[in-house]
Nucleic acid binder design. Structure first.
Length: 706
DNA sequence: GCGTGACATTTTTTT
DNA sequence: AATGTCACGC
């Protein structure tokens, strides 16, 4: 027992050994949050206060859930089966699979991912003859999800004008369509299980009685519905242990409600708050920068990180001429660090938006620096995999019109839009599903129905992996991609799908979960899979700042630190948008253990045209004494290494050029973005930091170079 | 039913 | 710049 607590600091130990009551743990970046969470669970079990059966632990990502299970198994010799550890959605799914009848769902209900949901919405709107120009399907999707995430059904959606009333109608029709087809989108999993427990008192009491301890990771990311969902599970004898960091809340844009933390403190923790402020990750200067930056946010619970380590290196700031210049600077530094012995995989190249990776990738590729980009299309989201899964969905649940439409003419069987329209008509008239209508149809559609029926006959007795293999062959998917000259990768992915199914069958799920086709489909929907197969070799890590949350690296490069990029211009329109951007910057800074680079470019290719941006305000918000400006070296000329790729602007007779930083007595600092005239008529267009863009006559403006 | 070109669109992302 | 969507014609 004591060995368990030995390596914890006093605050961590206090958190781990809290008595059976609710508490809020404010855990700063790098303060050992996951460690506290997992150690607490082990401590509770080892000290006999609760059996694994009585614990519910919730995370946001599958990765975090797995990490937690791995750590617990390492600490606990006994088996951890019976513990409910998983994501909100995974646990909600588990609940609904167990109580499908009470929840009003078919036993083999399918899960729609975001893309499936969007196509379901499009299909619905088409059948209702709704103008998709006026009501964009994506906006409809956001409307529906937004309401569901706040715990509202269509009837509860506020609608005071014609537009929102129409949206609410679509919302209602969408839910009806899902119900008819036996499918549930991600948020529906949560809302439906919430409603299930809310309405079903015996069931609610059962779970409230069962779970003595509920532990929640990344609590700052919970949305309104998730918080309510948790509260339903909390009976009078349940202790809620919420771990979070309000300063790292960067998902408000997808519904995370930071107010949940303050609310939790009031409703449950009652002042039982422990702050973990000792950081074990970064050196002093890096933390000072992070602390100073985040202190400028007004809405905080308050927290200040400190470290027992020394100050360490200063933070290196680089002012590049262009995005390409910035990229080659990064390449040079990465190589130098790598030569010094830092693994490429221990360095991260961060940016605000995915579009920025292109230039960086290009430079890395040219310099033959191995790198790996995170983000993008994931395994179970690939079209060939989705096609195969759609066949499986149709086998499992014939009511699933979405799955039907996805595969009815893929590979092509000569069943076109017209035919399908007629089929949909027939189905609608008799209130039947497309599949049912197809079974009584003739011609090509009947052929398709026969094919699927035949597949079903064969597959019913086969183990999962073989069944999927058969589906891929018999459906014609394999032949289709074999015939396609660019189909090799896709074939390989289909093969990989069979492997994934085999792996899934072997894996030991919690509570002897049955390895059915249905559970595999749920697995595929809930765990979209790793982004791209990393080849395991040492590679520089490229990702957005969002994707870097929870990770740490020896060296971190934060690039593109320009106004309108980071902070992003869109954030200016959002309530508290700037504060969220600042938290994002805080997350980025605190990823670094030893070395941190901040860079910005004076010009950047964006959306096909050159943009001139001012350095990010976040750079000004950092304390100067921890910064090292790499541009202000004693050499008169810019560093030759870094200036190589830039094409110098031709000088003109005024001494000013486009892209140059200048200062004006009244307007402050800015950047020259255009130029016209010559001699005494010369005028420049300057984009000022604070007052916008202005044309100035050089003869009068009295600009000075910065 | 499918290929082609015009046209818009462009933050962040998990489940 | 690059990507996706959609209408149109074969």
């Amino acid at each position: 027992m004591s060995a368990l607590l030995e390596h914890l600091n006093p605050e961590q130990r206090a958190a781990v050994t809290l008595p059976h009551e609710s508490a809020l743990i404010l855990a700063g970046a790098g303060s050992g949050k996951t460690r506290v969470l997992t150690t607490r669970m082990v401590w509770l079990i080892q000290s006999g206060q609760v059996s694994p059966h009585g614990i519910l632990a919730v995370t946001f990502t599958n990765k975090a859930a797995k990490e937690m299970m791995t750590r617990i198994s390492a600490m606990l010799p006994i088996n951890t089966r019976g513990m409910w550890v998983g994501t909100f959605h995974g646990l909600a799914n588990r609940l609904l699979r167990t109580h499908w009848r009470e929840a009003g769902l078919p036993q083999s209900f399918q899960i729609l991912d975001s893309a499936d949901q969007l196509s379901a919405i499009k299909r619905l709107m088409k059948s209702l003859n709704i103008d998709t120009e006026k009501y964009e399907p994506k906006k409809v999707q956001r409307f529906i999800n937004g309401h569901k995430e706040a715990g509202r059904r269509a009837k509860d959606a506020e609608a005071f004008d014609e537009y929102s009333m129409r949206l609410a109608e679509i919302f209602e029709a969408y839910d009806a369509q899902c119900q008819r087809e036996g499918v549930a989108d991600f948020t529906e999993l949560l809302l439906r299980s919430y409603e299930l427990l809310y309405r079903n008192e015996p069931l609610r009491e059962h779970y409230r009685d069962r779970f003595k301890h509920i532990l929640i990771d990344e609590f700052q990311d919970t949305n309104t519905l998730q918080y309510r969902w948790l509260k339903l599970f909390a009976g009078p004898h349940t202790a809620l242990f919420a771990v979070g960091d309000d300063d790292q809340s960067i998902y408000a844009f997808r519904g995370a409600n930071t107010a949940n933390m303050a609310e939790f403190e009031r409703e449950f923790a009652h002042g039982n708050v422990i702050k973990l402020e000792q950081n074990y990750r970064s050196h002093g200067h890096i933390l000072t920068a992070a602390n100073t930056l985040i202190a400028q946010n007004a809405h905080r619970l308050g927290k200040n990180l400190w470290t027992a380590e020394g100050e360490g290196e200063p933070i290196r700031v680089f002012d590049a001429y262009s995005d390409q210049d910035e990229a080659s600077f990064v390449v040079d530094e990465v190589r130098a660090l790598n030569r010094e012995g830092v693994n490429l995989s221990d360095m991260a190249l961060l940016y605000r938006s995915n579009a920025q990776s292109r230039v960086l990738e290009h430079a890395l590729f040219s310099a033959s620096v191995p790198y790996r980009v995170y983000g993008g299309l994931r395994f179970f989201e690939r079209q060939e995999v989705k096609h195969a899964l759609a066949y499986l969905r149709l086998l499992s649940n014939p009511e699933d019109d979405g799955a039907f439409l996805r595969v009815v003419n893929f590979p092509t069987r000569g069943i076109g839009a017209r035919t399908l329209e007629q089929l949909a008509d027939t189905a609608a008239r008799s209130g039947a599903s497309l599949w049912q209508a197809a079974c009584t149809a003739s011609g090509k559609v009947a052929g398709f129905a026969k094919l699927v029926e035949a597949i079903k006959q064969v597959v019913v007795d086969l183990p999962l992996a073989e069944a999927i293999d058969h589906v891929i062959e018999a459906s014609g998917l394999a032949d289709f991609y074999r015939a396609d000259k660019d189909g090799a990768d896709r074939l390989e992915n289909l093969n990989e799908l069979v492997n994934a199914a085999a792996l899934f069958e072997e894996s030991s799920g919690e509570e002897a979960e049955e390895k059915t086709l249905e559970s595999f489909l749920a697995h595929a929907a809930l765990e979209a899979g790793e982004h791209q197969a990393g080849l395991g070799h040492d590679a520089l890590q490229l990702m957005t700042v969002h994707a870097a949350k929870g990770l740490e690296f020896h060296a971190v490069f934060i690039t593109g630190l320009e106004e309108s990029l980071f902070p992003h211009e869109q954030s200016a329109n959002e309530e508290n948008g700037l504060e969220e951007e600042r938290r994002l910057m805080y997350v980025a800074i605190t990823r670094a253990r030893r070395r941190l680079y901040l860079s910005h470019a004076q010009s950047r290719m964006l959306h096909g045209q050159i943009r001139y941006g001012m350095p990010s305000r976040f750079l000004d918000e950092l304390p100067e004494q921890v910064l090292l400006n790499l541009n202000r070296r004693s050499e008169p000329a810019p560093q030759p290494n870094y200036s190589a790729p830039r094409s110098p602007q031709p000088a003109n007779d005024t001494g000013y050029k486009v892209g140059q930083s200048v200062a004006h007595a009244k307007f402050g600092t800015g950047i020259i973005i255009d130029f016209e005239g010559r001699g005494s008529d010369a005028r420049v267009q300057v984009k000022f930091r604070n007052v916008g863009t202005k044309w100035l006559a050089l003869a009068y403006a009295n600009l000075s170079a910065v």
